[in-house]
Design a protein around this nucleic acid. Structure first.
Lengths: 147, 147
DNA sequence: CTGAACCCTGTAGTCACTACAGGGTCAAGC
DNA sequence: GCTTGACCCTGTAGTGACTACAGGGTTCAG
């Protein structure tokens, strides 16, 4: 009954690279599967399930160590959920902080990109990074606006 | 007049680690400064300026290679700005894509975290990861770590 | 029986740093 | 003059989460 996959089949089914699957095994996120006589890995449906769990966790942005914890919790359903909840909460806070960072970046970049650099205004991006004013400060290249 | 900094002083002034400053030199982002007899680096105000340029670029999320390009553009103000503008535009698009990814994560996590896991019911996070059809599908890039 | 497609191990590369280890130098205080 | 402690040097290795080979072995269809 239990379907057996080669690493390639498992890869296709799960959308995870074979190299990544082997990597997960190496770091102990997936159990080492039984091997054929020639040394090929053969995966059970249970391991395929576990791999999908890992992939979904990664898609949500959890780190490997967080996923390791979540796997342990999933393996012991009698354990308190508060750990998983706490992890998710923490992770949510991190995601929100990252969004805030990126939104700040977006705003600054948006202002800089908005510059119609066809005009005489000389590239606001460079100016912004190079705090001394390349255009406003007169002397330097008054005609710089070749472009 | 030209102030000369040791690497430590430059580090304090710029907010960039000494180790990172040496790293920038190693990869050619900063010029190798002159040395004292005993081999200590001594930085000019111009290099300090360049370092601030780099730091601001990093804060905006530009990669090292992008900053290398921007530095070249800054060194040649007569060059067309369109390259810098293009870089900024591209980068803005990447930032926006990342924000969208993270917002998808935030939504899913927000729903999962809402679970009142005091109850005996196994928590929604684990369930969501463990089941075939969980949360929003096809969500996000696996490299959400970003930095 | 040949060739492609698959599998194996092990190592090194990615990005942008950061953290040592194992030394040398400098300035101040005693 | 000597010690102390803060600073500096080089070089290597570690981080996270993979990815990309190199250099081989296996399997199966034609």
């Amino acid at each position: 009954m239990s379907a057996r996959y080669t690493i390639g089949a498992l890869s296709k089914e799960s959308g995870v690279n074979p190299e990544t699957i082997r990597y997960y095994e190496r770091i102990g996120l997936l159990p080492a599967p039984p091997r054929s006589d020639s040394g090929y890995r053969h995966y059970s449906a249970a391991t395929a399930q576990r791999l999908r769990f890992v992939r979904r966790g990664r898609e949500l942005g959890f780190g490997i160590e967080e996923i390791r914890t979540l796997l342990q919790l999933a393996d012991h359903p009698e354990a308190a959920c508060s750990t998983a909840d706490e992890l998710a909460r923490q992770h949510l806070a991190e995601v929100e902080a990252k969004i805030a960072d990126l939104e700040a970046m977006r705003e600054v970049l948006g202002r800089l990109v908005g510059c119609d650099s066809q005009s005489a205004e000389h590239c606001r991006l460079i100016e912004a990074l190079d705090q001394r004013n390349c255009c406003g400060h007169g002397a330097a290249a008054p005609d710089a606006g070749g472009q």
